[in-house]
């Protein structure tokens, strides 16, 4: 296939998508069976297939790219693809943020008797006291009642600073790439990755603290549910983003990317900024307000 400007690039048939589908099927089917007592082998196998697929698929793309098969148009398609993928992630998060807002603005006050729910409170949950963060539950049977709430200006604030600085370092790395300063590129990427994993580490530390000292768990009622769902989902995204950036780090050390051609790097850094912005939302609505 040709790579001339103005011409189209069409990839050859590829087996990777099918491998990916089999991987997804095995992973998720395996996970569901595991939830019902089957061994986790299937799930592990599926994850293995998925990792294999990613190496294969991304490897192919990188190879094609290194051999100059992609032109401006392909590059732009990738960009649109990434932009809309991130947009879909924003909406995925908004489902959980929506749950948080709904619970704080409606469900919990209603359980406490607000608006048209006087009877909900007086007949069903007369003992319940609706204050957020929710430390008493309407009915704590079967739940782990938390003894305290997450602190705002300690670790979470440190984590905010860390994540914000990592946004700066990745931009700095990008400047290096644009200037052709490879050292600045690898240095910046290294710092970003280091900050990213530090963030994840601190987050894990915070979870341990919440579980053991505060008895705040996924099963601590809606406060714990929303807290862990939002921060956990975010933490997972940070991890993925950090892995993506690690790959970029290795690739840049191998001499990949030029000042003109470095979509993969940009995609990873967009993703990183997105994860950053989500964290700000979390910091404000989950920890602070």
């Amino acid at each position: 296939m040709s790579a001339k400007e103005g011409d189209y690039y069409l990839p050859e048939p590829s087996g990777w998508p099918l491998v990916g589908s089999v991987g997804l099927f095995t992973t998720l089917g395996g996970f569901a069976s595991y939830l019902h007592g089957a061994s986790p082998m299937f799930m592990m196998l599926g994850i293995g297939i998925l990792i294999y697929m990613m190496f294969g698929w991304f490897g192919t793309v990188i190879h094609e790219n290194q051999h100059g098969l992609y032109n401006k148009q392909v590059d732009k398609s990738f960009r649109w693809g990434m932009v809309w993928f991130i947009f879909s992630e924003v909406l995925f998060f908004s489902a959980f943020f929506g749950a948080l807002f709904y619970v704080r603005m409606f469900a919990v006050p209603w359980l406490g008797g607000a608006d048209n729910n006087v009877y909900t409170h007086s007949i069903l949950w007369p003992e319940f006291n609706a204050v957020w963060p929710l430390l008493t539950l309407p009915n704590s049977e079967g739940f782990d009642v938390a003894s305290g709430v997450m602190d705002t200006w300690g670790l979470p604030f440190v984590n905010t600073i860390i994540l914000l600085s990592s946004g700066a370092t990745v931009t700095w790395a990008h400047w290096g790439l644009l200037k052709g300063n490879r050292n600045q590129l690898t240095m910046g990427l290294f710092l970003t990755v280091a900050l990213g994993f530090t963030f994840v580490g601190l987050q894990a530390y915070e979870y341990v603290h919440a579980y053991h000292e505060l008895n705040l768990k996924l099963s601590s009622g809606i406060y714990g549910s929303t807290f862990f769902m939002l921060t956990g989902f975010h933490g997972m995204h940070v991890t993925i983003g950090a892995i993506m950036l690690t790959v970029m780090l290795f690739r840049s050390m191998k001499g990949h990317f030029t000042a003109e051609h470095h979509f993969a790097f940009e995609a990873a850094s967009w993703y990183w900024h997105f994860v950053d912005v989500v964290w700000l939302g979390l910091f404000i609505f989950v920890y602070w307000l």
């Binding site: 995925f92 749950a99 009915n139 768990k217 996924l218 009622g221 809606i222 714990g224 549910s225």
Partner: peptide, 30 residues
């Protein structure tokens, strides 16, 4: 729209297996 559906089923999964109470009034959900 589709990611929001994914969010809904994810919360369902958590309610079913991980002890959350998104859709359960006893834990403050709805």
């Amino acid at each position: 729209a589709m990611p929001v559906l994914a969010g809904a089923v994810t919360m369902m999964l958590a309610d079913r297996h991980f002890g959350t109470s998104f859709f359960n009034a006893a834990g403050g959900g709805d």
